[in-house]
């Protein structure tokens, strides 16, 4: 079946099988590789993207469900360079292997869009669906907090 939608501000369409996940369609058919596949069952969050502004796990959404939707992946956040959040992550060496980073950046971006000054607990809550095995989360959380303390700059 054919579906069309907006992907990172561009109109795109694809031909998909009814059982195909959005994650698979993005990666294999559209060549958008920032969402990663770590579990394919909603546990790890590496496939996190924004669907109509909400962060979702793209391994749990079927490609045929996104007709007319607006999809943003990490690639789409950088249309005018690194975001302040990305800069904060970079400056603080927030990631190690980086496999979780695309999903984590998306989840944190969504949080900051709804809450410009989250506290530690709110950040922990917002990132709880994104697993990171390397960092112990502290540097990721600290980078978000620092950004908040610096007024989002």
């Amino acid at each position: 079946m054919k579906v069309s939608f907006t992907l990172n501000s561009e109109t795109r369409w694809l031909e998909c099988q009814p059982n195909q996940t959005l994650l698979h369609a993005l990666r294999e058919q559209l060549g958008v590789k920032s969402p990663k596949c770590g579990c394919e069952r909603g546990d790890c969050g590496t496939c996190t993207i924004l669907l109509d502004g909400k962060s979702i796990k793209s391994c749990l959404v079927l490609a045929c469900e996104v007709e007319g939707c607006e999809i943003t992946t990490l690639e789409g956040l950088m249309q005018s360079g690194l975001t302040p959040l990305q800069k904060a992550f970079l400056d603080q060496n927030a990631f190690q292997c980086g496999f979780c980073a695309p999903g984590m950046v998306i989840a944190a971006t969504e949080l900051l869009e709804h809450n410009s000054s989250p506290n530690r607990g709110e950040i922990e809550e917002a990132l709880a669906g994104n697993l990171c095995r390397c960092t112990g989360y502290a540097p990721i959380i600290d980078a978000v907090l620092d950004l908040v303390d610096n007024g989002g700059k």
């Binding site: 590789k33 980086g98 695309p102």
Partner: peptide, 23 residues
Amino acid sequence: KSAVRVDGKAKITGAAQFVDDLD
């Protein structure tokens, strides 16, 4: 010195390619 990671930018932008990302 706590230098910024030389691979930091690749990782936070999704530019870092893992095996399954290769075409």
